[in-house]
Computed example of a mutant assay.
Amino acid sequence: MADRDFIRQMPEQSLGGERGLLGAIHLDPWLLLLLSVLLCAGLVVLYSGADQNVAVVEAQGVRIGIGFLIMVLLAQPDPAFYRRWSPLVYIAGVMALMAVLIMGVGAKGAQRWLDLPGLPRFQPSEFMKLAVPAMAAWYLSRFYLPPSFSRLMVAVVLVLVPMVLIIRQPDLGTALLVGAAGLVVVFFAGISWKLVGAFLALIGVTAPALWFFVMREYQKQRVLTLLNPESDPLGSGWNIIQSKTAIGSGGLTGKGWLSGTQSHLDFLPESHTDFIVAVLAEEFGFIGVLALLFLYLLIIGRCFYIAVYAQDSFSRLLAGALTMTFFVYVFVNIGMVSGILPIVGVPLPLVSFGGTSIVTLMAGFGVLMSIHTHRRMLAA
């Protein structure tokens, strides 16, 4: 059980630099600084990607403000609070996903939103990116680690249930992100490499069945477009062709801010959302992309540091999963825009225009800061 878990005790002086104002409100100064730099840089690129539309930048600023507020609020409770409430939040999320299938609001052929009286329209699947890893971490941390095979299977089922409900909306991209967040917890809990190999083999065996019986036509078309975008250059291949053109035309140093042609002449679709990294590559070049990746690397490194030095199994598993979720966001978006992954509609984290994604990610960083700043210290 949880009370059997090993609790790390941190020397008091190790936290000496974090006991100021930010420490009092449970914010990690390094992570806060890195996130602020990324968000400010994102607004600069967004202004260009949105064709200098100030209203878009202002709307993004409002979303960032809401995200910061939620991050600060979620940093205040002790991690034990999240462990205690994880099962109820998970159950509520699963019920919300079921409600989406029954009474959800549809748009562009997908039924993914709930529009309840007195509440703004929201997408329950986004919040499962936090609820699923928290639930998996809660379940596995109740036992000695590494867990037994039967307990691993229970954890996998807890991950698969919301995945299946999200796939039925349909929203394969979000389902994969939710599944990755949950399965990372299972992996970090101590799964053997033999089971990892068996899992990968199972995916390989079931892939044909997924293609014929699960994937919809537009999802199959995305895979085919990835393999040969030139087969339909004016249709399904247009987005990726224009994206790679924008990235390649930036060269080493780029064309300069607000001087990109692919985005400002409307060749590049979704230039302020999913394909915003192509705007950055065209205007700031290879150096600009490297700077962005380095900033992401610093954020991920700081988050892993928080995970490694967390005091209990629940905190370590949850922190590791939230960190890997952020990494998957970055990897999938940049891979998608550069043509090495199918287009699945995953935004570039904290840079692309969007509301739910920013709020969800900032909420995750709030939980990470709670884990880091509530570490118990030995008396001097």
Rank of each mutant, 00 (worst) to 15 (best):
P342R: 09
M377P: 06
M215R: 11
L268P: 05
A75R: 03
I66F: 06
R84Y: 11
S14P: 04
R376A: 08
C40Y: 15
L293V: 15
L210A: 15
L295F: 08
K255F: 08
A319V: 12
I276H: 07
M71I: 01
V277Y: 12
A80N: 03
A131F: 00
S236D: 15
M369N: 14
L176E: 10
A180Q: 02
V56C: 11
G364M: 09
M336F: 01
L177I: 15
A155N: 11
V154F: 01
G67K: 04
V157Y: 04
Q111P: 03
V308E: 03
L88G: 12
I371F: 05
A307Q: 00
F143S: 13
V196Y: 02
M10T: 14
T325M: 14
Y218F: 08
R222H: 10
V57D: 13
Y47H: 06
L234F: 11
A107P: 03
F331Y: 04
P11C: 05
G235Y: 13
G65C: 02
Q123R: 12
A246H: 00
G197R: 10
G17E: 15
V161R: 08
G364C: 05
P147K: 06
I91M: 10
F122W: 06
M362V: 04
L172A: 11
L43G: 10
G248A: 13
L202S: 14
R84F: 12
P87G: 11
V277D: 10
F365T: 10
L210S: 12
P342C: 06
D312L: 01
L73W: 05
I287L: 10
G104P: 02
L322F: 04
D5P: 00
I64K: 05
L165P: 01
R376V: 11
M153V: 11
V308G: 00
D274V: 05
A136Q: 07
V367F: 06
V132K: 10
L97A: 09
V54Q: 04
I299Q: 01
A310L: 07
F68A: 14
A41I: 07
D171V: 02
V277R: 05
L350I: 09
G355D: 12
T253C: 11
T273D: 14
A246T: 05
G301W: 12
D28R: 07
I166P: 00
G20R: 13
I240A: 07
K220T: 07
V196E: 01
L27P: 03
G364S: 06
E126C: 00
L140F: 01
A319T: 09
F294N: 00
M103Y: 13
P87M: 10
S271N: 07
I299W: 03
Q311F: 10
L31I: 01
G67T: 07
S125E: 09
W211H: 09
L46M: 05
F331L: 15
L234R: 08
F267G: 02
L33K: 04
M128W: 12
V45A: 14
L15M: 15
V89C: 08
G256I: 07
P170A: 02
I276F: 06
F212P: 01
R375Q: 14
F213G: 04
P120V: 03
A307L: 02
V359Q: 15
V157R: 04
M336C: 00
